[in-house]
């Protein structure tokens, strides 16, 4: 089981790095999917099979499908890949990269200083999760449902084609590039 954790951790980090350096949106999405599957395997090893399944169903299923539909609707062509190549010269990413490296080293130092403990991988069953979810965290469930409703209404409002692009407020002020 240890080997499964280490291998999938390596796959997750590698696939995630491939996401942020991807030029093509669909290639980035496929790498993100690999990363999510690896993290889901880690969840399974850590004794959270319910969350592993949810990760695949919601992240790997629903959210990825949303992304893919948007990429299809935007109809991005090879021009975007060239544009991405122009947008990512080394001098742009080297600064934030070094700063983030400093942050992760600090974070690692803070984590490693704490006393270590082992994760036995004892399984927390979906039954226990459900009891906690609808018992102690019932208010959280209500908040989540309200959040989803707000997301639904917001996405519907933003998604409707109310203003034609050439008549939008930006175009009327003559600033549309």
């Amino acid at each position: 089981m240890n080997a499964v954790f280490y291998i999938s951790a390596g796959v997750a980090v590698l696939a995630t790095v491939m996401v942020i350096v991807a030029k093509n949106a669909i290639h980035g999405l496929l790498s993100l999917l690999v990363s999510l599957l690896a993290v889901s395997l880690i969840f399974y090893v850590m004794g959270a099979p319910f969350i592993a399944a949810l990760e695949i169903i919601i992240y790997g299923g629903a959210i990825m499908v949303l992304f893919i539909f948007v990429v299809m609707l935007l109809n991005l062509g090879p021009a975007m890949v060239d544009q991405e190549r122009q947008w990512l010269p080394a001098r742009i990413w080297i600064g934030p990269g070094i700063l983030a490296l400093v942050l992760v080293v600090e974070m690692g130092y803070v984590i490693v200083r704490r006393p270590n403990a082992g994760i036995s991988g004892s399984v927390v069953t979906p039954q226990e999760v459900g009891l906690a979810l609808f018992g102690l965290y019932l208010l959280g469930v209500e908040l989540a449902s309200m959040l989803l409703l707000v997301g639904l209404v917001g996405a519907y409002y933003l998604g409707q084609r109310r203003i034609p692009p050439e008549k939008g407020p930006v175009a009327q002020r003559g600033r549309l590039p």
Partner: peptide, 24 residues
Amino acid sequence: RADGQVMVIIILTVAAAEVAVGLA
């Protein structure tokens, strides 16, 4: 404990709502 997994479910909800509004 199951509490960590409950928090992950709430994070999933936030991610789903965020991605719907963000993609719109």
